[in-house]
Nucleic acid binder design. Structure first.
Lengths: 142, 142
DNA sequence: GCAGTATTGAGACTGAGTATCAATATGGTT
DNA sequence: AACCATATTGATACTCAGTCTCAATACTGC
């Protein structure tokens, strides 16, 4: 039920979309790939002093547009991004350690379609996020 | 399925929580009560020149803390608030006119509990938002 | 009506993200 | 390998939403 890690090379995706392969983009993407649990824009900027702030944000926006990362808003209003391993999924966000885990559930998708029938209007999309305490944090507390 | 409009007087709720009844708070709350479809902070501030900007934000925060309004993040990343008519609910946000409608669905809540069993970790809360084109906008298009 | 404290407003500040623009790197040609 | 057109970059100024500060003011209980 947790999404698996099958994922094409991000740089090739960028190239295939007609964007240029540049050193800053390589640097940012390489760093992101080491962050399976989500990352913040400033965190990336801080870790890559050789890449300009604007470029970090631009690259993140580009990856969002391409659809290979997704943006999520935490309970406290801050923003995180996370690598999208699978097309459509939802998030389990640990309120303690901030780890983001994707998950898929066909029941939810079926339900969403069922609700579409009940609602007066047309459903275009949905966002579902669960605030959790992840297993690691739970174990740690004991 | 759409939430009904039974709602206690907001000012009494504020008073009952031990906060003072002040003119700025009365002004803000009075205006909010005319906005069943959601509102933005700057929109409120713009409409109430006699109330300071900080106070508008403070009042909104207070109402959030009390739990009588809820914050929601639109698809475009902007923030809206909406009067909470019922304790726990989800939102139908019209991507065309921006109208926010609450809705309840016991199936969702049952499902959330079921997912709690599958997930490794403890579920504390969840947010579900549907992007829709509301009936009014659909009709208007025809 | 008074005192003590919660609240206010003006404005400075913050953090996240965007726009500008001259300088530079990239990829397709030759 | 050098060349060119243009996509991209970095520095910096800027915007926007929201918060902080602090002296002045308004509430509420007495």
């Amino acid at each position: 039920m947790v999404a698996s890690q099958f994922r094409p090379d991000l740089m090739s995706v960028i190239e295939d979309m007609g964007y240029r392969i540049t050193q800053p983009r390589r640097d940012v993407v390489k760093l992101l790939e080491t962050k399976p649990d989500g990352f913040g824009a400033e965190e990336i900027h801080g870790a890559l002093p050789e890449v300009g702030r604007a470029t970090v944000y631009r690259t993140i926006r580009l990856l969002l547009d391409i659809g290979v990362i997704c943006k999520l808003v935490m309970r406290d209003g801050s923003t995180k991004y996370s690598l999208a391993r699978v097309e459509h999924h939802h998030h389990l966000v640990c309120v303690r350690c901030g780890t983001v885990e994707e998950f898929l559930d066909s029941t939810i998708e079926r339900l969403v379609r069922a609700i579409g029938a009940e609602v007066s209007g047309e459903i275009l999309g949905h966002r579902i996020e669960f605030d959790v305490i992840c297993k690691t944090c739970l174990d740690y507390a004991n």
